[in-house]
Write a protein that binds this DNA or RNA. Structure first.
Length: 433
DNA sequence: TCTGGGGTCCTAGGACCC
DNA sequence: TCTGGGGTCCTAGGACCC
């Protein structure tokens, strides 16, 4: 290879592949009757709308809206409603990401429905890039049934913006954006990745409305107003690479499991039981990523819509430094019970609890201490491995700790759930010929 | 009646230490 | 009445993202 450094820099692009209306699309793959129909997917406990098909967007169902506020609309327009089926979505996501990984080695799975790619030396012109992306898009659709959009740009932020354009303004679902693209005069700042409601309001105050105007802002002002985050955003939108691909496994600093309760809870013992279950999931996650937690934090949230506390506080948290970094479910459960007891106040209506692992270290580097019984440690690890294997093969919570209570599963309201077409032999899609 | 569950990064204030 | 300065750690909260 005889590329100069400059030539290398010039031929580097980022692409963002984003699944269209991902959860709604997953439901559609296994239920063709949903084609052309408005479809929405609900959060845990059937609380809010978290995904909408284009048809559902068109009839005015907002993102994040509580279900009870759109019930009338749902009835009158015959909207198809689904409880979140994260097992299905997770499996479909894995399939999509596998196809992407086949096409590009430099891949960062950014979220369940999005991935960044770094494209180097692959293509010379924007035209050939677009052709490549269109082919990729067709392949993903053919192999998984999921429609995706592809945005291409000089930085991750521009790729993200290009993806937005691809979704809103193209028929092909692919767009490559340039830093001097005429469209930047039309695109408003609120559409930029990293500009939320507050930032948008402040920028509009000083007369900045379009991306083109944003590009002309002085870097010093941006730094002063929005800190290092804002400065980075500005540089990225001007085409200067600040954000690189990340490895989500090593880059992750916390891992958390939290859930709202279907009803408010008042009893410490019941909260400890729920936390034992969350700790079980947390342990599974940590072991999956081969990490161990150095610090454990327990969160308790008070129902903010019906807060009975005089001081109005809604969030309580307490951390504990673990004597030895661990991913052993047994240890996580014991500590969660201890910390929860310290946090708990009688007479408070708790709506949600969570457990977070931080100070994560690779599990084989976990620092033992002098008093640790190594044989017991080894034995515990073998037990956890066995438990994971059994639960993977036989289904979640086949084997569990007694602290979770009898027949444990996180109790959720799920009135509209589809089945696990791809991950459960009992729930395979049946086709009648 | 009914309002998700993950993450990241940054900042501010209090406790505590030297 | 007057009442250091600097550092770290912890907790809380706010901004953003999906």
């Amino acid at each position: 290879m005889f590329f100069t450094d400059q030539a290398k820099a010039m031929s580097r692009y980022f692409a963002l592949v984003d699944c269209n209306n991902f959860y709604a699309s997953c439901e559609r793959v296994f239920n063709p009757k949903l084609e052309k129909k408005p479809v929405v997917v609900l959060s845990n406990n059937d609380g809010c709308v978290i995904a909408r098909s284009n048809e559902a967007k068109a009839i005015g169902i907002p993102m994040g809206e509580p279900l009870f506020k759109v019930k009338a609309l749902i009835r009158s327009k015959d909207v198809k409603v689904f409880s979140a089926n994260f097992t299905l979505y997770g499996d479909m996501s894995r399939r999509v990401m596998e196809v992407l990984a086949d096409h590009c080695a430099d891949l960062e799975v950014y979220s369940i429905d999005e991935a960044f790619m770094e494209l180097r030396f692959y293509h010379q012109s924007a035209n050939s890039l677009v052709a490549w992306a269109e082919k990729l898009r067709a392949t993903v659709y053919q192999w998984t049934g999921i429609p995706v959009s592809v945005g291409i740009g000089a930085t991750k932020t521009l790729a993200k913006l290009a993806n937005h354009v691809a979704k809103k303004r193209t028929r092909t679902g692919v767009y490559a954006i340039r830093t001097d693209d005429p469209l930047l005069h039309e695109i408003t700042i609120g559409e930029v990745w990293g500009i939320g409601r507050r930032y948008e309001a402040r920028l509009r105050q000083v007369g900045v409305n379009t991306v083109r105007e944003l590009q002309c802002i002085e870097e010093g002002w941006m730094r002063q107003e929005f800190g290092v985050v804002g400065l980075r955003l500005l540089k990225e939108i001007k085409g200067e690479v600040c954000l690189l691909l990340e490895d989500p496994v090593t880059a992750r600093k916390h891992t958390m499991v939290s859930r709202s309760f279907a009803d408010d809870l008042y009893e410490l013992a019941e909260i400890q039981r729920r936390l034992a279950l969350y700790a079980t999931r947390l342990g599974e996650k940590l072991r999956h990523y081969r990490q161990a937690a150095g610090v454990l934090t327990i969160y308790l949230w008070v129902n903010k819509h019906r807060n009975r506390r005089r001081d109005g506080r809604t969030c309580f948290a307490r951390s504990v430094n673990l004597p030895i970094a661990t991913n052993n479910t047994n240890h996580l459960i014991s500590w969660s019970a201890v910390v929860a007891k310290a946090l708990f106040e009688a007479g408070t209506n708790y709506k949600k609890a969570g457990i977070m692992a931080s100070e994560l270290v690779p599990e084989n580097l976990s620092q033992g201490n002098l008093f640790q019984d190594h044989r017991a440690h080894e034995r515990d690890n073998r037990v956890m491995k066995l438990v994971d294997e059994l639960n993977q093969k036989m289904g979640q919570s086949t084997v569990y700790f007694a602290a979770c209570g009898e027949r444990p599963s996180i109790p959720l309201r799920q009135d509209y759930k589809s089945v696990n077409f791809t991950t459960n032999w009992q729930e395979l899609l049946e086709i009648w010929g």
